[in-house]
Amino acid sequence: MSCWDTIADYGLRSVGIGARLLPKEDFTLCQQVTLIGSGMIWNVYFGILALLSGFFLATALAMGKASRSPLLRKPAEWLIFLFRGSPLFIQFFFAYFLFLSLKQVFPVFAPFTAAWLGALVVLFLNTAAYSGEIFYGALLSIPKGDIEAADAYGMSGWSRFRRIVFPTMMRLAWPAYTNEAIFLFHATTLVFFSGFPAWRQKGDALYYASYFADKTFNPFVPYPILAGYFILLTLIVVGLFGLINRRLNRHLPQAKRQRLRLRMNLIR
């Protein structure tokens, strides 16, 4: 079998297109690169959807935590504390068994026991909690002079938030939020190792890398391939977020623009 035939058979296997069975012997480098790359489809799916949906909840959590009303502040504080204070692996584990228990009583929860939806909900809440804390810190760092200037121009409520508060909060939070986006994509590798089953062996990139490592007894081929895919994905995320960062800081002098810096997230 040529490498092109391997790509045709296994390139989209992780989403149910192509060969149904995994290779059992004579594992080639092309098979490993193709199948691990196929699994990256799920990592990108989880990362993009969780990031997009979590952004809006994170903004709401930041505003709620900064609110003077306990009815808004306390729920935001506890949700942020809960998902930042517990390991993501444990969140996947408990979420799966929670959805499994709810499924027995309410069949409508059946889709949540599948990774494509249940794990996505966990990642959505987790990144919203981390991002909400980042946005909250940026919200507190908004210069008072900006708010006073908005008040002097007669801005209040939604107009002040849309024109002054939100853009400034994003500009201040964006470097740290970029790091959160990167580590969110890295965290997607935990999905199929924490409770959510891989139906018909349709797992993510780490699932296939582990499969080849177990079959060949040589982890020094599949895992570097996996690392290469994630390095490439990280470069893409940094590039895209860097363009947005330049857009947010376009009105500032070059010397005062914040640069994106990668920092290790040791807690998650």
Results as ranks from 00 to 15, higher is better:
R247A: 12
I164K: 00
L102K: 15
S86Y: 11
A149Y: 00
L248F: 13
R84Y: 09
G37D: 00
L240K: 03
Y10T: 02
Y229G: 01
Y229N: 03
N218M: 09
S69N: 06
F135I: 04
L206T: 14
R84T: 10
S2M: 05
L172Y: 00
E148T: 02
V105L: 06
L35F: 03
Y153F: 14
L51R: 04
W78R: 09
L226Q: 13
T189L: 10
R268C: 06
F46T: 10
L240M: 06
A205K: 08
G145V: 07
L51K: 02
F92P: 02
M155S: 07
L100I: 15
A255W: 06
V108A: 12
V238G: 10
S38L: 10
L243Y: 13
N218A: 08
P111Q: 07
A198E: 05
G145Q: 09
M155Y: 07
Y130L: 06
L139Y: 08
T59F: 04
T59I: 09
L88I: 12
E133W: 03
G203K: 03
F241W: 04
P224Q: 04
G157R: 00
S101N: 12
R73K: 07
G239H: 11
Y177S: 00
R263I: 11
A62W: 10
Y207H: 06
L252C: 08
F99M: 05
G54L: 05
M155P: 09
L266G: 11
F112A: 08
D214R: 14
R200L: 10
V44E: 01
N43Q: 11
F97C: 03
A205I: 11
T28V: 03
P167F: 00
A176C: 05
C30N: 01
H251C: 03
F196V: 03
F97Q: 14
I17S: 00
R68C: 08
S156K: 11
L125S: 12
L233Q: 07
N245G: 15
G11R: 00
L243A: 11
Y177E: 00
G228Y: 03
N43D: 13
F212N: 15
Q258D: 06
R162V: 04
P219V: 07
A62T: 06
A227E: 09
R20C: 09
A95D: 04
S69R: 07
A181E: 04
G203M: 03
G195T: 02
G137R: 08
L98W: 07
E25A: 14
A58L: 05
